[in-house]
Design a protein around this nucleic acid. Sequence first.
DNA 1: TGAGGCATGTAAGAAGTTACATGATTTG
DNA 2: CAAATCATGTAACTTCTTACATGCCTCA
Lengths: 179, 179
Amino acid sequence: MSLRHALLGLLHGAPASGYDLTKQFGERLERFAWHARHSQIYPELGKMLADDLIEVVEEGPRGRRTYAITDAGRAELREWMMRPPANPQVRRESLLRMFLLSTLDSEDARQLLARHAEAVRAESERLREVIATRFDGADDPDDPRWADRLIVEAGLRHAEASYAWTKWAMRLLETCGTR
Amino acid sequence: MSLRHALLGLLHGAPASGYDLTKQFGERLERFAWHARHSQIYPELGKMLADDLIEVVEEGPRGRRTYAITDAGRAELREWMMRPPANPQVRRESLLRMFLLSTLDSEDARQLLARHAEAVRAESERLREVIATRFDGADDPDDPRWADRLIVEAGLRHAEASYAWTKWAMRLLETCGTR
DNA sequence: TGAGGCATGTAAGAAGTTACATGATTTG
DNA sequence: CAAATCATGTAACTTCTTACATGCCTCA
């Protein structure tokens, strides 16, 4: 139940409404770590409330409810964080495509690899830009941007690794493959 | 519908039964790209048969049915391969944990990072071993092990990038954080 | 006063997991 | 003949996506 723990983690930082949490997913988590829509978040908050992991601390306009993490929630979060991850279930559609590269003729394969290379190169560049502009001086565990800084860096390093991998694959395809 | 296309891709290589495909998922795809159980694979094969993307080419003992990809299946696979991927929906539980590192006290955070580092280091080592033993000389698009070689290499490079990232994060945590 | 954003929810269905269930064949 | 492996399937449940649905508040 990673959704639940992602929500607990976000609420650990500060109280927030379902709407706030939906936005935070989109802005902070979606790109590198986890994805969730409001239609999944609202019901989950309801269940977490029933389980006393969170509580309503404020009611605002338009039915807005601000939730805060409870002590039980903090305990649950820490327990999950320190528990050895069971099965790191990967799901990488782009890597699935790369796996199936050999189902294409070499012209298509070259084109697909080239497009993939360009996509990860552009992604790397974008992330370097983001780091330089939005995370300047955030290389510090006490900076409030630290959590975001961490995963942007991970995203950048992964994108760079993907780019290097693509170059490697393209070189092999060029030198050997004339299927 | 990545499951469908993963199955089409595997069948592009050679005809296989549901049982074979389940094993191939476990041995070839599960670790780096995609995960599926037989309880998902069998019904999907039924639907693909109904859609004429695959056909039964042999019936063996114990009700074994061997499927082969049809021309329609090949067309569908190629179309999917060349179609620009819509939303590369990531899902990385371990990175979610890293994002939430700042919810832990620094002692716990250090321990979690150290465990993560050790896990990805061991993974890198294992993959280097696999490449040296099982993929020696497979750096060639004409080798039947090419597809597997590709994603093992991607897995290795990602593991190495993760390791380097972890070292970076640990260094920052050591030098700055005494929360 | 209209547009844009705030704010919440539900319903239907697809995708994925876990557990249940059965039985044939091969091999030691 | 027992154990391992081959081989297929369904049922119940959880998770996730897409679409539908409603209405308030702020600011230009």
